[in-house]
Simulated scan of single mutants.
Amino acid sequence: MFKPIKSLAFATLGLAIAAPVMAEEVNLYSYRQPELLKPLTDAFEAETGIDVNVAYLSKGMVERLTAEGKRSPADLVLTVDISRLSAVVEAGLTQPVQSDVLTANVPAAYHDPDGQWWGLTTRARVVYASKDRVKPGEVTTYEDLADPKWKGRICTRSGTHAYNVALTAAVIHHLGEDGAKQWLEGVKANLARKPQGNDRAQVKAIWAGECDIAIGNTYYMGKMLEDPEQKAWADSVNIVFPVFEGGGAHVNISGVALTKSAPNKENALKLMEFLTSPKAQQIYAEANHEYPIAPGSEPGELVKSWGSFTADDVNLMELAKLRPAALRIIEEVDFDG
Rank of each mutant, 00 (worst) to 15 (best):
F335R: 05
E45H: 12
E138W: 08
K279F: 03
F309P: 03
V237T: 09
G14H: 12
V240A: 08
G179R: 10
N164I: 01
M224Y: 03
R157S: 05
V165N: 06
D51I: 05
A169W: 10
Y31A: 02
A180W: 07
D100L: 14
L319R: 04
K321G: 10
I239L: 13
K270L: 13
V237E: 05
L8G: 14
E177M: 00
M22H: 13
Y142I: 01
G300I: 10
R193E: 01
I239P: 03
N27C: 09
V165E: 11
V54A: 05
T160H: 01
A109N: 10
T141N: 02
I154P: 02
V106N: 10
V333C: 07
A162R: 06
I253R: 00
L65W: 08
A55V: 14
V203Y: 03
L85K: 07
T94I: 12
D313I: 09
P299W: 06
L302R: 15
P292M: 10
P107G: 10
P4E: 11
V127R: 06
D75P: 09
L175D: 11
D100Q: 15
E226A: 09
E245Y: 11
P107C: 09
H250S: 05
P73V: 14
K260A: 14
P20C: 06
N53G: 14
S130V: 05
N53R: 11
T79V: 14
R157H: 00
E273D: 06
S72R: 04
A166E: 09
T140V: 15
V126W: 09
G115D: 07
I50V: 15
E35H: 12
R157C: 01
T310K: 13
A18L: 09
E63V: 08
G69S: 09
A280R: 10
K151D: 04
L40I: 15
